[in-house]
């Protein structure tokens, strides 16, 4: 039996391009997910295509929910969706939007309506 696999916690996966990581953005997404009370895991990948990052994250996540990040472009993806058709594909403009992306990823699992990506910044 593959021990590692059975220990894999159900969580939202965040895959980020290794060379273009934006620490603050990843943190904010994490805070959003945490506020909603869902576990998540961040991994850095070689992959450049943000579509692939999000798609792979969703495929590997036990919850079937993945986020792909490349620079400030963030995609929310779920297992059953096609690679080129993510749920959200947003050029993040500010902290609040990153947090909302995290909140919405969690809400996908909690099955409650998404928050709107307000442009207003504090």
């Amino acid at each position: 039996m593959n021990r590692n696999k059975s220990l894999k916690k159900p969580s939202i996966y965040i895959f980020c391009n290794k060379n273009k990581k934006n620490k603050e953005l990843i943190n904010q997404i994490g805070y959003g997910i945490e506020e909603e009370g869902i576990p998540f895991k961040v991994s850095l990948k070689e992959e450049n295509s943000v579509n692939k990052l999000a798609y792979n994250a969703a495929q590997e996540s036990k919850l079937g929910i993945g986020i792909g990040i490349n620079n400030n472009r963030v995609l929310l993806q779920m297992k059953k969706l096609k690679e080129k058709n993510p749920i959200f594909d947003i050029k993040i403009a500010g902290q609040l939007q990153s947090k909302i992306m995290g909140i919405n990823a969690a809400r996908l699992e909690k099955k409650i309506p998404f928050k709107e990506f307000v442009v207003k910044e504090d």
Binding site: M78, K80, L81, N85, I87, F88, R107, L108, K111, I112, P113, F114
Partner: peptide, 28 residues
């Protein structure tokens, strides 16, 4: 709207969609 792909009618019946529903409808 119960998931990205199905809705449940008020009488309990479920309708399935081939293409994902728009996110603004999710769980509404």
């Amino acid at each position: 709207v119960e998931s990205m792909f199905n809705i449940r009618h008020e009488d309990g019946g479920v309708h399935f969609f081939e293409n994902p529903l728009p996110p603004k409808l999710f769980s509404r």
